[in-house]
Design a protein around this nucleic acid. Structure first.
Lengths: 100, 100
DNA sequence: TCAGTATATTAGTAATTGCTAATATACTAA
DNA sequence: TTAGTATATTAGCAATTACTAATATACTGA
């Protein structure tokens, strides 16, 4: 139990950032390139975005593939989709106001 | 969406701590006094425990009642029970290894 | 090769976190 | 009142976080 609590706290620490949550929400809708993400996330620098993606990748949450000069990221650990889905369900008035 | 993401990230920040998760797991099983919690959570000081409880209370996650010289805490926001339930479901091998 | 684009990495910094130690407050029993 | 117990609060510190700016790497087309 202690170990699992630690593991879950670690996961939550990764999710507990506004920009990383936005990244994950966008990727849940489908894979996207780094620059595609950059356009959808307001006011994020290239460096910050890249660092967030690296962290999510390091935790096994994201996967990526390179094609030409761009890198496409996608959800690797689908459990986080479930977690985010529950968060949306309970903490967003309208689950559909998420278009964008 | 931006505002909700911020709100959810804030909640996750509160949950993203091993001791606070343990506190919540204990309280999900039923209300407990501060000293009762202190016995169940390994290696936590009185001060640290009190500060965690104050934070959870400030976020509306816990409620409390005083009786004599002891204070009993309980879950106030039952949405976090759902969130923790999903986390347990996906991140604990055995959902029942939580006796203690 | 070169210039341009996409992405990653590094170093440095301000803000935040989680803790301990000390002290304060509130209640109880004698 | 006094001593003892339960809990809260405060100050201070080390560790961590999230960012920016700068630089590096990798790929592409001419």
């Amino acid at each position: 139990m202690k170990r699992q609590t630690k593991e879950i706290a670690g996961l939550l620490k990764v999710l507990a950032n506004e920009n990383r949550l936005l990244i994950l929400c966008k990727l849940i809708k489908g894979p996207k390139t780094v620059s595609g993400l950059g356009e959808k996330i307001p006011n994020i620098t290239q460096s910050a975005l890249s660092q967030h993606l690296a962290l999510l990748k390091a935790h096994g949450i994201l996967d990526f593939s390179k094609a030409g000069q761009s890198v496409t990221y996608s959800i690797a650990d689908h459990r986080v989709e479930q977690v985010i889905s529950v968060l949306k369900k309970y903490y967003c008035d309208n689950e559909e106001d998420d278009q964008g």
